[in-house]
Amino acid sequence: MFSTLGYYICIPFAALVKLFYNLTNSYGVAIILFTVAIKLIMLPFQIKSKKSMIRMNRMSGKMQEIQKKYANNQAKMNEEMQKLYEEEGVSPMSGCLWSFIPLPILIALYSIIRQPITHFMMISKETALGLLDKAAAAGVDISALTMTSKDTVQFSAYGQIGLVKAITSQCPEIVEGVDGWINLNYNFLGMDLTVTPWEAVKNFTFTAAIIGLILIPILAGGFQLLMSIYTMKNQPQQGANGASMKSMMYMMPLMSVYIGFIMPAALGVYWIAQSVFSLIQEVIMTKFFNKKIEEEENARYEARQAERQKRMEEGRKQQAERKNQEERKQTLKEKQKAAQAAKATKAAKAGISTTEAGRVGNRPYARGRAYKADRYDEKE
């Protein structure tokens, strides 16, 4: 089941490698162009992941404050962290998924390199075994190309590579009429990309081809180390996590060197191209997104300041309006008090007015200077 699944996974990648090989007639160049194509296909996802990682890096100070503040309350710490992620628009898992994708691509490419007949040319296994019999009949020594498993003959680990090279150099006529067959040329810059660098070490001779084969895994590990150093520099980790990341920074390149020595050099070419293009991409995206995110943060800060200024202005206006209302109320009260005082004064004056002093009955001005109250009384 897994072998069948792996076969179908290889189909689109094999189609890409085959396209570039037919265009360039160079196996090494085809692998490099394949790497470029994969990087371009993955670019939108890697951009999203990189942007999220840069945001995570820039908010590391806030995260440390939360971790310190809620060190004894894990549930509250997680809650505050989630709030921070939502406020910043960051998903902590967004960069994890895409970091695993290069591995299945590497495995698929290894299958394409190791099994060129069935996984690159997409020729059936039965036809491939038939070609093995024809090659043996044509005088090709196939003892190193096969192995017996459960009484059946199968290709050895790199048997298909050996058969392709043997047919191409000794008996190309046996593949006439075989649909999909390609006479592969594995030579690249004077090196045979089907050879493992460790074989070059064991059979060392001071030639450019041998030295080049030995340098392939070293360069692959070196460029991966540069990539790790640059990534760690721009995404510093703290505490135990930082120590773990630092260990991985040296471990992974060393593993790349080891794997590069024991597998065909073609895989090492892919590894070098992958590391170089990843490093270039990392440098460009880091500078671009740091600048862009800084501009976004400045814009948000200016927007917050403008909003704060607006609220302050509104507050001052409201305060001035309240003051004016209080002044108007005070003025009205003063007017009312003045009116009441004037009324009281008028009333006081009215109490001693000429009208009242001269009133006799209903006649307000009945009294004069010569007024005598008994003027008209009857005299006895």
Rank of each mutant, 00 (worst) to 15 (best):
Y230K: 00
Y230G: 04
Y230R: 04
K233N: 06
K233C: 11
Q235T: 13
P236E: 02
Q237G: 04
Q238E: 13
A240D: 14
A240N: 10
N241E: 11
N241W: 09
N241K: 08
A243C: 14
K246G: 10
K246S: 14
S247P: 09
S247A: 12
M248H: 06
M249N: 08
M251H: 06
M251P: 11
M252Y: 04
M252C: 02
V257C: 09
I259V: 01
F261Y: 07
M263A: 11
P264F: 00
A265W: 01
A266Y: 11
L267P: 04
G268N: 03
G268E: 04
G268M: 02
V269E: 00
W271N: 01
A273V: 00
Q274D: 12
Q274N: 15
Q274T: 11
Q274M: 08
S275V: 00
V276S: 00
V276T: 02
V276M: 01
V276G: 00
F277K: 00
S278G: 07
I280D: 02
Q281F: 00
M285G: 14
M285C: 11
T286S: 07
K287W: 11
F288A: 10
F289A: 02
N290Y: 05
N290M: 07
K292R: 07
K292M: 11
K292E: 12
E296V: 10
E297R: 11
N298P: 05
R300T: 06
Y301V: 13
E302G: 09
E302Y: 03
E302R: 12
A303V: 01
Q305H: 06
E307F: 09
R308F: 02
Q309I: 03
Q309L: 14
K310G: 13
E314M: 14
E314F: 05
E314R: 08
R316I: 14
Q318N: 14
Q318E: 04
Q319P: 05
Q319S: 08
A320C: 02
E321L: 10
R322P: 10
R322N: 10
K323C: 06
E326I: 09
E326C: 01
E327Q: 11
R328P: 08
K329H: 05
L332S: 15
K333D: 08
E334I: 07
K335H: 07
K335T: 06
K337S: 15
A338C: 01
A338K: 04
A339Q: 13
A339E: 05
A341C: 03
A342M: 09
K343Y: 06
K343R: 15
A344H: 10
T345D: 14
K346F: 05
K346M: 13
A347D: 13
A347G: 05
A347M: 13
A348Y: 13
A348T: 03
K349Y: 14
K349R: 13
